[in-house]
Design a protein around this nucleic acid. Structure first.
Length: 507
RNA sequence: GCUCCGUUCGUCUAGGGGUUAGGACAUCAGAUUUUCAUUCUGGUAACACGGGUUCGAUUCCCGUACGGAGUACCA
């Protein structure tokens, strides 16, 4: 396999969207699989949309997700710089070349003039309202103005450079996911290549950089497919057709319900994260919760994301990053958009939590306790973790489901109480409490044997008191196995809880 | 409007001219757990529609419908 050079090229206009993370992942998988190079390129050519902190956020998010960058603004590399704003001079050379060869031209139209053109076209019932070969000669540009006038306007410094797209050409794109896609160059417009502030547009910058950085595969979202013919034309114009990268346009991530692509709004409404990490928008001060902070494990999220649009063709679903790298292939990416389903993400998380060691879960619990200033020994944390392990989806559930190990219940399931509390069961629990009172440490088996003994003396089955006992101890009707719980709590604590609960039930 | 892309259970998908159309999530039922969860077993549930091509089409072709994307001096 020839080593692939791929890039993830976000623009620092905000937090990294979960769909962007998937795009980065697919790029990364191909890079690692082929022993190639993963490049991060910051596409910050729109100065008006620049958001401070966004670049740093993107880098931290990728790092958390386990997507390691080989070349980028932080790591450097010999094809840099990796921020497009720092490559301004490079782009100028290339537009100059196109200008000289007559493949691009200067345009001076104001925004109002452009709008007027579109309005005119709409009114006339034309099929499109593009600045293209059919309209360019009616516009204010170096094609329609005299050489002197053009020179004067250029000297004023207010101009854009547009691609001069020839009509009547068939543009063929061989997409790795979609196969051959054909376009008619007549419907490609004369896109702006260089903006009036001297910055390139995405179209120019992307082609120039991909060429200069020797990118072999452009793996990006499907939203780029319509502008792909322009990019192909640009490669041709520069004479780079032979070394043009392969394209793979990824299916989009769609809303869980309704129509359209997944947006932050949907996530907010349905209550799930859309960003990898917590993000505070510096403009609005608004904070959005991240996957990390919501308790998703990075490898679980990655596994989930990998399967949204790709599958290995086998029944295996749990894949580590290494396994994904080994099995991944662009050919097995599906063509249609994938609805985003947070339930599946939760299921993956649950699976990954179970694969963690009791020790690791214990450390999570200990840190949660520490935050609440509740002491928790390693031994206790580990015991709790092992009884709770199969029952949780997020690390925070350790506390939610195990709080009763630290604080006696204040609320009790009254349904169980009214159903199970009889003079007889009360008496059993009373006696059980006394038996427990001199046993600070007690094993599961002993707790069980003791209960059976008391029940036998009172002539009832253990099953008749078990649930009432659980409510006394934990307050709830359901929960982890009772005997191990008693062992964790210890005899003294259990006795106290039984007594106080029984007292409460009397009133 | 125009251009491009797409369409298999509710969801993610496998499959592919002749299959009992497979798996996973979700859901329902039963078993286990004298609780809940887990686990196990089983169930419900899909080839958008219409024309071709063919002995035969869910699979290939063409339309239609529906969905999506793009249509900026944003990426």
């Amino acid at each position: 396999m020839t080593p692939a050079r791929v890039r993830f090229a976000p623009s620092p206009t905000g937090a990294l969207h979960i769909g962007g993370l998937r795009t980065a992942l697919y790029n990364y998988l191909l890079a690692r699989q082929t022993g190639g190079t993963m490049i991060l390129r910051i596409e910050d050519t729109d100065q008006t949309r620049f958001v401070p902190g966004a670049e740093d956020y993107i880098i931290k998010s990728l790092e958390w997700a386990g997507i390691n960058i080989d070349e980028g603004p932080v790591q450097g590399g010999n094809k840099g710089p990796y921020r497009q704003s720092e490559r301004k001079e490079i782009y100028k050379q290339f537009t100059d070349q196109l200008l000289k060869e007559g493949k691009a031209y200067y345009a001076f139209d104001s925004e109002a003039e452009l709008e007027a053109m579109r309005e005119r076209l709409r009114a006339s019932g034309a099929s499109g309202q593009q600045y293209d070969q059919s309209t360019r000669m009616q516009m204010v540009n170096s094609l329609t103005l005299s050489a002197e006038e053009t020179a004067r306007r250029i000297a004023e410094g207010k101009f854009v450079i547009r691609m001069k797209v020839e009509s009547g050409k068939k543009v063929v794109l061989n997409d790795l996911i979609r196969g051959t896609v054909e376009f008619d160059s007549a419907q490609v417009d004369d896109k702006v290549l260089m903006k009036s502030d001297g910055m390139p547009t995405y179209h120019l910058a992307n082609v120039v950089d991909d060429h200069l950085m020797e990118i072999t595969h452009v793996i990006r979202g499907e939203e780029w497919l319509p502008s792909a013919p322009l990019h192909v034309l640009l490669y041709e114009a520069f004479g780079w057709s032979q070394s043009m990268p392969s394209f793979a346009h990824l299916p989009l991530l769609l809303k869980p319900d309704g129509n359209g692509k997944l947006s932050k709004r949907d996530a907010d409404q349905l209550g799930f994260p859309i960003f990898p990490l917590d993000w505070t928008d510096p403009r609005t001060g608004e904070t959005a919760r991240g996957y990390k902070e919501s308790g998703y494990l990075p490898d679980a999220l990655i596994n989930f994301l990998a399967f949204l649009g790709w599958n290995p063709g086998t029944d295996q679903e749990i894949f580590s990053m290494e396994q994904l790298i080994a099995s991944f292939s662009l050919e097995r990416i599906s063509k249609s958009g994938a609805r985003f389903d947070i339930h599946k993400a939760q299921w993956f998380n649950q699976q990954y939590i179970r694969m963690r060691s009791a020790g690791e879960l214990a450390r999570w619990l200990q840190s949660q306790c520490a935050q609440k200033s509740i002491p928790c020994s390693e031994e206790k944390a580990e015991k709790i973790a092992s009884v709770l392990k199969e029952r949780i989806t997020f690390p925070s559930d350790l506390w939610n489901a195990g709080e009763f190990f630290f604080t006696p219940p204040t609320q009790f399931d009254l349904g169980v109480v009214s159903k199970k509390k009889t003079p007889q069961t009360e008496k059993v629990l009373d006696k059980y409490a006394i038996e427990l009172s001199d046993k600070p440490r007690i094993s599961d088996a002993d707790a069980q044997a003791l209960l059976e003994k008391v029940c036998l003396e009172e002539g009832i089955k253990t099953g008749q008191v078990l649930q009432l006992l659980r409510v006394c101890l934990t307050g709830a009707a359901g929960g982890p196995d009772l005997m191990p719980s008693i062992s964790i709590l210890g005899g003294i604590e259990c006795r106290a809880r039984i007594n106080s609960a029984l007292l409460k039930f009397k009133s």
